[in-house]
Design a protein around this nucleic acid. Sequence first.
DNA 1: AAGACGCCGTACCGTATGTTACGAATTTTA
DNA 2: TAAAATTCGTAACATACGGTACGGCGTCTT
Lengths: 275, 275
Amino acid sequence: MASSIAELIAERIDAMPAGERRAAQTLVANYPVIGLKTVADFSQQAGVSSPTILRFVSRLGFHNYPEFQAALQDELAAQLQSPLTRTVTAPSPDSGKTSPVLEATLNNIHETFRHVSEKQISEIVARLANPRAKIFLIGGRFTDPIAHYMAAHLTIVRSNVFHLTGQESTWRDRLIDMGKRDVLLIFDIRRYQESLIRLAEKAHARGVEIVLFTDQWLSPIARFARHVIAGRTAVPSSWDSSAALFVMAETLIGELTRAMEAESARRIREMEELR
Amino acid sequence: MASSIAELIAERIDAMPAGERRAAQTLVANYPVIGLKTVADFSQQAGVSSPTILRFVSRLGFHNYPEFQAALQDELAAQLQSPLTRTVTAPSPDSGKTSPVLEATLNNIHETFRHVSEKQISEIVARLANPRAKIFLIGGRFTDPIAHYMAAHLTIVRSNVFHLTGQESTWRDRLIDMGKRDVLLIFDIRRYQESLIRLAEKAHARGVEIVLFTDQWLSPIARFARHVIAGRTAVPSSWDSSAALFVMAETLIGELTRAMEAESARRIREMEELR
DNA sequence: AAGACGCCGTACCGTATGTTACGAATTTTA
DNA sequence: TAAAATTCGTAACATACGGTACGGCGTCTT
């Protein structure tokens, strides 16, 4: 027995043909507002034809579309009428429904940000906003994708962003391009990689400003780093979560975007024109 | 200036004639559901005639009834998207410290998981746990790092994991290795990339099972996908956040690790010995 | 490889829905 | 108290919306 329409869909979505499944997915993704609009709107959003929408609601057990909408409205009314149900069933199903890994991850994110000061962030952002500085990024085995992600976004708002990739010998030679004004962002969590430590040491010797993203036990690179972001990584599993570092990277991107609003807007406009 | 329709009503209700005031009161009492139903329903509930309802919405500044309904729906959508902003911002003292981007990100993660059923996750995990299936991963411009990250972790717990990287021509040829038993994980958010759509279409034609990680507007690839994970990406900035998808990827990794506990433990032990 | 089945979209239809005109009733003003 | 203005409902109207029949297409079966 399904109490809500969302559950009903989850039950039957497997028995649906491709088109109707697509309808089900868009409804779930925009639940429930899209279902309150017209069949035409719904079908367009889902990328299928209107009859498919009607067949979809029919398969859910409704005799016609208005009956389906009425059910959605009743559900909505029941949900909105009693603020208790909302605070009990909606926001805190975290405890019952969500997996322990997710819960730990959210905790990690919170904790990580609690231990990072605004000043620290603004200082890093200020440094990244300097257009004359070159920015290099690199990460370890599991964290290099985050470095890559961050590089992709930094490239949007400013120039001179370089993601060090490939073999160690390749990017080790890039040291020659790094100077006092430049910044090296390193992601390194357990088990800390020897190659990264060597790189950090040499870069530090050249006067490069190092920003380190690591775990709460701190990579040895911290010794050379100007700024250290220590993210919580512990989850109830045999591996370490990098979600906190990922969110931290996004936050820096966001702050930097805001700080460079004028310049980055112009840059983005130019990029659009190049397409 | 009134931000919500409810406020708009409160502002003007004194200047209304009796009939329209009744309409306003019933709308506030059953907000907003009654306004989503037909004019006839609304008028009957309020005990007035339909033209009175029309005059009422007209007095609120809307040109016609559908426009009024659209406004209600938009408001509802905005409200439902972030059910936590209200319950979180008030009680938690963090709200002063944390940036709006971070808050939105945490909301996105919550919302994303709310719209994904456990069954969906367990089915995907079951498929990934099949040792005979080959697993291919690929992503778009900003999401490919997530694919890369996930691939790095999947490699730990099982074999036959391939991250499609480099030029399009390179990985397009890998299609030949894909068969009915295999799984293709695609990350694709706005703006959806043509090349990925083409790949998905061809893979689908070969009977490959596609798992799509996209945003709430659903990449066109959803048409070919067996499973669709719709992550919230909206943050108060000019770019889209991928954090929800990242956490979702980690969750799948965690679940898979648990599901393959016996085998993966043996595999990890073997890897340790190889060092 | 040929047939059968089921799915999906195009085109059309009937109707429920929003809309408007007009007159009765009620309130306001002189 | 009478006239004027405003409000409100009845009834007729047009349109857009939900619904359906049909044919093409892909997929699975024997």
